[in-house]
Amino acid sequence: MTRYRYYTATTLDGFLADEHDSLDWLLSQPTGEDSILPYETFLADIGAIVAGRTTYQWVREHEGTVEGAWVFTQPTFLFTHRGLGEVPDGITAVSGDPADHRAALEAAADGKDVWIVGGGDLAAQFARAGMLDEVFVSIAPVTLGAGKPLLGGRVDLELLEHGINGALLEARYKVVGERA
């Protein structure tokens, strides 16, 4: 059964990125080999990826192995309200409620999980649609005071597991549901 998973990192005060969409706070954090859910293990279970426009553009600009390349090989659904022009093969631009795209997401995942790469508002939309099963978050010992929130909504979570990876506190949560 396909699960919808939000695997991300946040500052101690709950921001994914600063007000200029920078992740420099995360890239400067020391990590170790003791993750409770190593990235490679997580990624092996992912059959499809969901990203918002800002996350998509940041990854292409900063993480691509070829300038401007998308780093993931899994089918990717780009949720956007603004046009992007031409998008590379393997990426499908969509808009609207996540539930409208559930069948396509699960078909693309082909029995594996869907990773909601970001951002926090998009993850909250999936939670409101009943399509967010798990949140895995690495919490960095940094505060920003402002920026893009971890999860743009009211969601109840149940702690399943926690650990330490270098300077990061890790926590894996089951999504209980939207908080009334």
Rank of each mutant, 00 (worst) to 15 (best):
I139Q: 09
E63T: 01
I49V: 15
G147I: 00
G111N: 08
F126H: 06
A44L: 09
H101F: 07
A48D: 07
D97N: 11
P149H: 06
A103M: 02
A69K: 12
F42C: 02
L132D: 09
G68I: 09
A123G: 11
F42Y: 08
D97C: 00
K148D: 04
G68V: 05
K112D: 15
W58P: 00
Y56E: 01
T80E: 03
T143A: 15
G96K: 04
F79L: 07
V71A: 08
G152L: 11
A44K: 13
G145D: 14
A104D: 13
G147V: 00
G83H: 05
T54C: 06
V87A: 10
E86L: 06
G52I: 05
R128P: 03
A69S: 15
L37N: 04
L151S: 13
L43N: 08
T73R: 14
T73H: 12
L43T: 02
E63Y: 14
V87L: 09
G90E: 04
V117Q: 07
T80F: 02
V66N: 06
L151A: 05
Y56C: 03
R82K: 14
I36P: 00
A124L: 07
E61P: 01
G83K: 10
H101V: 14
T41Q: 13
L84N: 02
A104H: 04
E86R: 01
G47R: 10
L122F: 01
A108I: 10
K148S: 12
D133C: 03
F126R: 01
F126V: 00
F126A: 00
G47Q: 09
F72H: 13
